[in-house]
Design a binder for these strands. Sequence first.
RNA 1: UGGGGGAUCGUCUAGCGGUAGGACGCCAGCCUUUGGAGCUGGCUACCUAGGUUCGAUUCCUAGUCCCCCAGCCA
Length: 564
Amino acid sequence: MAESNGASNFIRDIVLADRAAGKHGGRVVTRFPPEPNGHLHIGHAKSICLNFGLAQDAPGGICHLRFDDTNPTTEDPAYVRSIQEDVRWLGFDWGDKMFFASDYFERLYSFAEGLIRKGKAYVDSLTADEMRSYRGTLTEPGKNSPYRNRSVEENLDLFRRMKAGEFPDGAHVLRAKIDMASPNINLRDPALYRIRHATHYRTGSAWCIYPGYDFAHPLSDAIEGITHSICTLEFEDHRPLYDWVVAESESPHRPQQIEFARLNIGQAVMSKRKLLELVEKKLVTGWDDPRLPTLKGLRRRGYTPEAIRAFCEHIGVAKRDAVVEMQLLEHFIREDLNKRSQRVMGVLKPLKVVIDNYPEGASEELDAVNNPEDPSAGTRKVPFARTLYIEHDDFLEDPPKQFFRLAPGREVRLRYAYIVKCVSVARDPRTGRIIELRCTYDPETRSGAPQAQRKVKATIHWVSAAHAVKGEVRLYNSLLKTDLAKVPPDQDWTTYLNPQSLEVVSGCQVEPSLGEARPGERFQFERLGYFCADPDSRPGAPVFNRTVSLKDAWSRMDKGSAGK
RNA sequence: UGGGGGAUCGUCUAGCGGUAGGACGCCAGCCUUUGGAGCUGGCUACCUAGGUUCGAUUCCUAGUCCCCCAGCCA
């Protein structure tokens, strides 16, 4: 199971204090309670890391995986499988503690009848619209429903008949009898059960009434002996109701609800509703589109669970609304991949180079370091020959002062190979486009040779034309042109999608070993970034997703002077 | 407007009456056969106004601004 480094936060402090005080017998039991109606995203990862992390920190602590499946109309077993897969991938283990709120339906129903017997719940027969108007507003108190004083017998009878399926959807609802004048709207007789003639993916047609969140959640926590029930800020108002339900259930367990601020990331789509919209309108390729902050998307993009966990640990846990910059997430994946990824050379936009003084038909194998950060990763051989491809961006016919790379008459080192000098430029007579460079090489400067020490301003990557494998590279940019928080609510947010979020580069030339790259394998393409082989790869025709670029001092300078 | 929360560098976050710290980012330099990595140095913050105190980001008072709540969603 993933380790946690124990960065302090206010929730950890509460748990620590509770343990020290012997509250809950010193035990720590948390839960991660997703509704199986969507796929997990990085925001869920924050909650997962928090809940599982808290449990790991405590001796004997445990974190349950509980599916909060109380709404049959939106839930699907495919999501249950997906969520389990993603939590495991992130590096957490719930052991045998996987539960479903739907498994508690029978007990929840009994609790509800108990509430009715105590006169703490009643069947209301107002329509949804009527109920809304009876509820009052933020500033005016609500009014009691005319059905509020039904007798216990009548309520019991009606509730049982609701369960038996005698009424259509919406005909009645079971409500808690609390206080229609409460300044907290959640306490104005909240709905506990609604009629829904729908097939539930787990209980089938056994039920036609389903408990709501405010009833099922606290009770599920109590049933499971949850000690700390951690949720997001919007449920803060529900806490009095949560406590009311637990107290009325007379459960010996009194879980404590604690709220924290959900994760927001600038220029990322994080809401379930919007993610669904993107997928359904086919504005992205699917839930695993690498532009999405879903766990599946991040995985396909090449993110590691370790990087995501490190990110979640470092963003902290607090109560103030916050928007974390995407650069922070990128920092953690770079940091992780820098240490562990194999270096390779790949040319995205090839420019042909012929080494005039290199013997025709000859070739040699040069030693390349697999990972300068990890000597144990060893070396590999890369083939060198007379005709090469270099990155088109590494050549400029009329270079500005700051440009260190190849230009007419200039020298650069070819990584792991020789120093070459550009002697001429060939262009397409029709389009004027540069199609080929002629260079000469200095045989004395082969990497590792005594004369190789000669300094040149730059080292560039390359591949041998005869040996290279053709591949496709997918470059990703922000899916959004702006932070969603800045988009006026009356506007269609999808008009802010970045048309350049995906750039497919075909005709890339990569070093031979990459022809057989397996989906999910990660590499650093030297000088370019980290790349991950996509499932669309075929033998001899690899496809790579750019996880994140390397930091690039030149592109920053280039942009900085673009206005001049 | 009722209720519930929250305000600390550009962005996250620490602090619990005693020099406001860390990370990302940015800037400068060193180093470098990745303009990567690494190293060094620098940058910028306590919402406002009063009060208590020898001393306030912290305590008190009054404001200001931001977020959430009127689903038979979670």
